[in-house]
Design a protein around this nucleic acid. Structure first.
Lengths: 225, 225
DNA sequence: GCCCGTAATTATGAATGCAATCAGCCGAGA
DNA sequence: TCTCGGCTGATTGCATTCATAATTACGGGC
């Protein structure tokens, strides 16, 4: 097991990661212009590694490079969401199938633990923590699938999804519903019912999309800022 | 319809594309080291845009960047293939479903035309041309799905698949079988039977993987060059 | 007063230069 | 003879500099 020999982390990777965090934290919002000079100066580096980092982020879809016109944080449209969620549902459904198939006692215990935390956070009503644990749960399932490429594709899509504010759970009753869906998925995995786990996971993702859509279309009470 | 105002193609993109072609043509083989200075000199450019291009290719998975140790063309393992094909089958299956659902008379005619070319090339026995038309057929289906993200994910996976030599069709009888599967898929789409098209496409992809696997495991008669 | 053309400014894109690190080689010592 | 240590050449990574295109500001004309 080599850790790539200590820590040969390139600067551009470091920079890319820091920018990712800023984008996910919506410190850099979709549509925002990224000022190369300003960022380079802020990080105390030259524009060269920064530009390399931006190329990577562009390949990931987080930013959009307009030749000769600069770099902007990618904006995700409703149409994109309508297209992404079905694909994600397909992939994560498959993931659940594989996980239900592969999971041994240890892995199931690990999932149960995460699910337990989910129940806790839901009870406590901490949406941000719930969101976080939820992500951990899904990631754990991805690992359990044992399919590196499945994991990668899901990761690619979830990354761009993070460009949007995760408002879905704020929808009335969505949190309870999400939790209920998780319970069902967990049960299916526990029973080793792979086809059911797959179906439930797909529905879970799609109903998540519905929740966001309803929020978007509805006249938001006191949205934005 | 603006074409982004003439041709604002960045140099690093141009370079990335040229390198992609060389990689796909196996002029640069998996495992090969990419000499920055040599390539930059060959293209008559500096290392800066070349390095940016390499970052992009790395994000695409075509090359692997080892910090301080250079850039190498990615090597795809059998295990990777075992993992990629099921995912690809899932996605392209979905694609076929959507295409069967969406396709109007015009689109079906376009598909029929491509399928016709496929039959021709198969009859002529030109494997390379068959492979090419086959790709065009699949790409056409992707477009028909109308899902940009589905298209993108499939493209991502197919790109890395192209790192491997496409020997599958050289398997005895595989070409005929592939053609037969295509006929069935085409028929399903023609009839608007989306679920059937989906199932057939999945099986088509998986049987394609089987063909490659059989070739790999079998003692190759006179492989390579 | 508004619009258009031109000049100045600013940002992006690419080239060059320099420092740090890695690989290979040679020699010394066990 | 084999192994360990230092040296040298080569290559990567980053900074700096230069060129070019786009945006803005200004002035003249309508």
């Amino acid at each position: 097991m080599n850790l790539a020999t200590i820590a040969p982390i390139a600067l551009y990777q470091e920079v890319a990661e820091r920018l990712r965090q800023r984008i996910f934290a919506h410190e850099l919002k979709p549509g925002d212009w990224i000022d190369e000079q300003a960022v380079a100066a802020e990080y105390g580096i030259s524009r060269t590694p920064l530009r390399e980092a931006l190329k990577v982020l562009a390949a990931e879809g987080l930013v959009t490079l307009k030749p000769r016109r600069g770099c902007y944080v990618t904006e995700i449209s409703e149409r994109d969401l309508d297209q992404i969620f079905p694909v994600l549902a397909l992939l994560e459904g498959r993931c659940a199938y594989e996980a239900a198939w592969n999971a041994g006692a240890d892995q199931i215990r690990r999932l149960e633990e995460l699910h337990g935390q989910l129940e806790e956070q839901a009870a406590g009503g901490d949406l941000d923590r719930f969101f976080e644990v939820n992500q951990a749960f899904h990631r754990c399932l991805q690992e359990l699938s044992g399919n590196r490429w499945l994991d990668q594709m899901i990761g690619d899509m979830r990354r761009v999804l993070k460009l949007t504010r995760h408002r879905s759970l704020r929808s009335d009753g969505r949190l309870a519903q999400s939790l209920e869906e998780h319970r069902a998925i967990m049960a299916a995995i526990r029973n080793g019912d792979a086809p059911l786990a797959e179906r439930l996971m797909r529905e879970h993702l799609l109903s998540g999309r519905d929740a966001v859509a309803r929020l978007e279309s509805a006249p938001r009470p006191a949205a934005a800022a």
